[in-house]
Design a protein around this nucleic acid. Structure first.
Lengths: 338, 338
DNA sequence: GATTGGCACTCGTAAGCGCCGAGTGCTACC
DNA sequence: GGTAGCACTCGGCGCTTACGAGTGCCAATC
């Protein structure tokens, strides 16, 4: 038996199923894709594919549907990337150009990707841990509260309020601001902690409690590992992808809000070699996401600050989605670098 | 005919329908609520209520279901507020206490409300327009970009990047920072514009382009009317509220992402006299939201900085939801004031 | 005049049934 | 190895029937 044809059959099944959303049988298969053999032959191939776990039939006498394993093989070996059309590319660039700050860039990117893929788009904020510190600002909000604002070279702005003892001198705050900035500006977040640890000693003893509070606030803010923010768009697309979704929807929406699970997934995906990563159904290792796949790509230059991705039913158009995710990631990198 | 009983019947219908999610007939009505009359009598009342537009039957020979008008009457005249239990109140307070900054407070509040009501919770960020300016910070991100950070007395931090001409002197930035702050700190956002308009004249002519850019950035940021941010939580609750939702869900999710519509609604609701406002189904004046109701309450003191609310199917437990929304709004005000 | 019991009527839903057709696996054949 | 033929399975569709919940109306009653 021609091993090649078997793969062709799998490809055909995936493509057809994604398109029609219905189990695909041997007959329509030879009709729609010109495979050059008879349905009976295809049936033999399908029987084997089923035995190997790439496809299943929902019930006897129905067509076949790809399994997660089937999609996986499809993505790894069978899919050809669909390049985006020139107008599409132009639209992406133009849409992202208009942003006024980091929040805006991120927001536009995620909406854009949701729109392009017709699925749920997800983007991580540039990780604090690999950004360099640009500036730390201290603002006395009132007598008892100090606002610590941290600005990174990626344009990200983080804030935290610190309760302070009464009657702090403005001059002390000014000195502290100067010293903190002198000590840390330009450093990677992960290097900041050590440098700041020395700071209290350099100040007058009576100011040390305040200094310690501020130092802690800065370190904690930079350290909150998984706490990097996640922005989601296009949740409505999930509901539109089919009528079957009614019950399957809720757990996914919950996962989207939970963020923790998604963050973990995104981080794991960063390990992958290729410039994009795919997790299909159960590969997410998280039951509520069993019915969906995630495609993501790093952005922000070689250091790969963070990731942007799309999430949809396992029955999705992988080549097109992969193309869109990569394209948006690339443009996003370019904008952030510029 | 006893007018009072007719209202009792309506109340009973609403309560029963909310509980069971099924059209309610005359028989179960007399069984479950002890109305002291026979089903036939109830039927007469129901016929009248239907004629007056408070209830309808989905099809002949089904029970009755409240209309938007029916819910409205229920909310306005029939509902008794269910006070929250002491443990619930305590939990609210404790949960909100732990927040570290404004973002965190808002985030906790909205999640909490979603949890309490088992519905979608929505919160507006404290409006920039009624906040007072606390501090404006200028940070040179690189040679060609200046980051303008605006901090209000509500703890809100807004940022915007301004492209600037090359070779700006640090001293100029420092002077500008001092002048902007001197001119604006403590002012209401709406008063800032006039004051800043005078600023360029006070600086040297060669610096004016830069000054103008910064002034514009500040004014624009404070001015973006409807642009106040909106945070949503508990979207998954929508999907869980019933199996009927499949098709009805998508438009609502879209509206939640759109934000514009919700912002408008919230703003409108601020006009209402009572300390909470309710919009039921079509009262939202927005077709996609025809199936849902929104309950909201202002928070942030007498000035009512912004609103927090809950959104769910028109068939919701109004008394309980109203109680939760009001409670969270109250605690939120307290936290922000403290 | 309000309330009630009785009754005929409507109609949506569930269940049972038969048919059709898609799709399969198997086997004999090329 | 590929193909054709064939018997078989079974889900979906349409039809009919039965059931029952719920109604509106009317005459009787308080």
């Amino acid at each position: 038996m021609a091993e090649d044809r078997k793969l062709d059959v799998l490809r055909a099944i995936v493509e057809d199923y994604v398109l029609t959303r219905e189990p695909v049988g041997s007959k329509v298969l030879v009709e729609r894709h010109n495979l050059g053999v008879s349905p009976a032959t295809i049936r033999n191939d399908m029987a084997q594919l089923e035995e190997e776990g790439y496809i299943v039939q929902p019930h006897t006498s129905a067509g076949r549907v790809p399994t997660d394993k089937g999609y996986r093989l499809f993505v790894d070996r069978l899919a050809e990337v669909k390049p985006l059309s020139a107008p599409e590319k132009r639209a992406i660039g133009q849409f992202l150009e208009g942003a006024v700050d980091l929040d805006d860039v991120i927001d536009r990117a995620v909406r854009l990707l949701a729109q392009l893929t017709q699925q749920v788009a997800v983007v991580q904020y540039p990780s604090l841990r690999v950004s360099a510190l640009r500036h730390v600002e201290l603002v006395l909000v009132d007598e008892r509260r100090l606002l610590v604002v941290i600005i990174t070279d990626t344009g990200r702005v983080e804030q935290r309020t610190v309760p302070i003892p009464d009657g702090i001198d403005l001059a002390v705050v000014a000195e502290l601001r100067a010293r903190v900035n002198a000590a840390t500006v330009g450093l990677r977040a992960q290097d900041v902690r050590a440098r700041l640890a020395e700071l209290p000693e350099q100040m007058r003893p009576e100011d040390r409690p305040l200094v310690q509070l501020v130092v802690d606030a800065v370190v904690e803010t930079l350290d909150q590992e998984g706490e990097d923010r996640l922005v989601v768009a296009g949740a409505a697309n999930l509901a539109r992808t089919g009528a079957d979704t009614a019950a399957m929807l809720s757990p996914v929406l919950e996962a989207l809000e939970e963020q923790v699970v998604l963050m973990r997934l995104m981080t794991e995906m960063a390990e992958d070699q290729r410039d994009f990563a795919v997790r299909i159904g159960h590969e997410t290792q998280y039951e509520p996401l069993a019915g969906v796949s995630i495609i993501s790509s790093g952005y922000g230059g070689d250091t790969a600050l963070a990731r942007i991705g799309a999430l949809g039913p396992t029955r999705m158009d992988y080549p097109a989605t992969i193309a869109s995710v990569r394209a948006v990631a690339r443009y996003l990198s370019r904008i952030l670098a510029g």
